[in-house]
Amino acid sequence: MTPFLRKLGAAPVSAWFGIVIVTLIALTAIFAPVLAPFPEFEVVGPQYSPWAAPHYLGTDALGRDVLSRLIYGARNTVGIALLTTALAFLIGASFGLLAATLGGWFDMVASRAVDVLMAIPSLIFALLILTITGTSVLSLILVIAVLDSTRVYRLSRAVAQGILTMDYVEVARMRGEGLFWIIRREVLPNSSAPLIAEFGLRFCFVFLFISALSFLGLGLQPPIADWGAMVRESARLISFADFSTWQTATFGLAPLLPAGAIALLTVSVNLIVDWVLHLASGLED
């Protein structure tokens, strides 16, 4: 058995819960067209039909199947959040590692720029930029990736600075290895644990951020199925929730389904991150 599998076997229940949920959501996102009983945009039934076959979670205000839209929503929302987080990491980690390795004026300029970006609350800054660029998927991804890369920059710079003082880096330098060789072969492998944990945390943050913007009507635009936008579309129904009959109760719970899906995914990722951090800290239970 490889060491990784052994660690996985010894993982606590909470981590297992996280892994199972994240895997399920990932599979749903990948196989969305196969799993969804109805198409993403098409009107397939009457408005607001109750939770009964063939619409297991009812239909929305336009008569689209809620279950299918939740399944496609997993693909759209999670896909865009992953892409954004990956981009934020690419920007933040490259600048952070370069700043730590090069030092000097590059470090100065990059760090001060990051300070200014971090001094403004990200939601406010994103709203300001989205006013200028308008709300398109591309501008959404770019804005959030740049804003989030500041946090990645701080972390990767700090971690890399710690590693660069090590003797083995000094040895590599004296051997005459180049800058990128040192980053790739010495710094990156040794900073993987905190960076992986940070990736999980950043993903949660980006995911919540995109959902929040979609909820405000400024993120992914209709008719794209998106969990945040689905909460927005069905928000008013909650005041009609009435637990006297099954039909009225499920009607009012409509906004809680996508909101709950968002909450479930972020909790699961956080549980995995906690476990990864615990492993990386080397503490024994």
Partner: peptide, 20 residues
């Protein structure tokens, strides 16, 4: 849980409980 839940999820749960 409170850190990972989106604000609107917390808000709607409270509405469902205390208001509806």
């Amino acid at each position: 849980a409170a850190i990972s839940f989106p604000e609107f999820f917390v808000a709607y749960i409270l509405v469902l409980l205390f208001s509806v």
